[in-house]
Design a binder for these strands. Sequence first.
DNA 1: TTGAAAGCGCTAACAA
DNA 2: TTGTTAGCGCTTTCAA
Lengths: 328, 328
Amino acid sequence: MKSASINDVARLAGVSTATVSHVINKTRIVSKETTEKVEAAIRQLNYRPNTMARNLRTGRTGEILFIVPDIGSVFFTSIIEALENTLSEQDYQLVLANTHESWEREKEYLRLLNRSNFDGLILATTQTEADVLTACLPADMPTVLVDRKLAGLNMNCVWVTSYRAVYDSVLDLAKQGHQKIGYIAGVAGVSTSQERLQAYQDAMAKLQLEPYIERGNSLPSSSPACFSRLIKRGCTAIVISNETMTDDALIYMYSQQPEIRRQVTVCGYRHDNARYSLADYAIIQPSGRMGVIAGERILELISSPETETKEVRLKARRDKGRAGARHY
Amino acid sequence: MKSASINDVARLAGVSTATVSHVINKTRIVSKETTEKVEAAIRQLNYRPNTMARNLRTGRTGEILFIVPDIGSVFFTSIIEALENTLSEQDYQLVLANTHESWEREKEYLRLLNRSNFDGLILATTQTEADVLTACLPADMPTVLVDRKLAGLNMNCVWVTSYRAVYDSVLDLAKQGHQKIGYIAGVAGVSTSQERLQAYQDAMAKLQLEPYIERGNSLPSSSPACFSRLIKRGCTAIVISNETMTDDALIYMYSQQPEIRRQVTVCGYRHDNARYSLADYAIIQPSGRMGVIAGERILELISSPETETKEVRLKARRDKGRAGARHY
DNA sequence: TTGAAAGCGCTAACAA
DNA sequence: TTGTTAGCGCTTTCAA
């Protein structure tokens, strides 16, 4: 048995479809009695508006796509949550696409985006070349870049700078007497990785200390391996340049070689809603805030597409730090 | 400037819209020349079929909703991934909704489901009463329960039993000489939690040992707290009844009190694609397999809704276990 | 091998 | 305050 349409409701209530529509959407004044008749009919027929018809008619879907590099990362989960909250207030629904830090998959989803009709796109890209990215972005689609920005790309975006936080952290470690301060760098190319590495290098140069850098990749074993190498190279302090790597390295090291704790001071990353941090010091990223801002921005863009491009830069803050795991 | 419609293409190519449609969907034979003319027109106008119109016409959206209790949990992430892969093969798109283990939020999404037109629903419910759940489920919507099943509910579902795995694990711990074997139970009511707890209790009864049970909640601090209490109560072995709690407890304990490692043997949970496990022994859940099966099942249901209800029960297997964190 | 045209269910402009 | 109706863009039946 097919489900009831707006026609059925109109007929049963003895009114026109226009009236039914207006009752449902509260889009013009309808007398009390009429409203009641319509509502009764709706209940009786268990009528639900057909979203596809409505979408076709209005040209909107109420859906926004978020292309995420790693849905399992606590950092992105926290952005997702903030986005969901922000968007649902305006009855928009967030749809997720997970790229696993792969540009191939990201391209795939961007293609999908052309087929599927989303009202907006939020993108934490894995691409590093502005030209390559723009070539794949659908035209006429309200878009906000989040977390990662590309040099030379004039687009709406929200990201967090932690140049200062990394720089200051390195200086502090040196002040504590550390000479051999190691660094575990994130996936090459990603804008945030680059900025942080630069901060480390600048600080070490300023301190006239020799840098110890290990470059990780996106495998979970990569970070512990980097960590081990830095220890072997004699580092007494290590800066780890993102949250996932911090967790991966420390969970592994602290459980395998608990004595390491006392031999090395670690400055890691965490987001502002983290369950715990194993690092001695943490650089805290306002991921929730970023999600809220991205959400608000995309809603703005949807309602007035001609708005000027806006770039929002947030600053990471530093946690004074207490040794050891801490549940927040 | 509005984007081109199928009419524009038809006009430019000098054919009917029917022909254009058939060229696009390869749904009837079209001569080579005509095909080429149409394709040229499509390219020239940069035409893309309007998904909303297509959806309205065909009555399908190609979207499936997955209501997840905790999107940040590695266990569910792994199911999600398997689902995505399975569904995308048939051009279905997975949409996620995160309930944070809250029935209120779940209800909210189930309501949304009525408005939004998804082709199917995959649900890992937080509800424990079959009646309450069924009252909120939209009728006529192909639905598959995943991970958690409700007693007395005749619905399509895939879940993992680990009764045997828990039971045997407890017996093995006893065989190793442990007398005081503690247990950290998961959120009350959830079917998997109940089954596992039962297995523990049955095993302890069989062994004629006194049970030591601590019941956790969904807060991240809960599991470490339970763990501490069990240690204080003198337990030398602890079984932790899900993956998140295993990680939460062990990350905290092992980093705060490394010496604990040698005092207690831990049997925890992990999924089959885990990055690491800190536990000495692990009960492995075939989460990927579960995702694949749920995906296949929902596709079946969509194509032939009258199929008989099917319940798939998978078995957790046990990892022989090696002490300490292990990256897989 | 191709085309004409109905109609999916809804919204909103226009009319009353 | 309410109704009539065009038409969103597509698929698909029926006819040629």
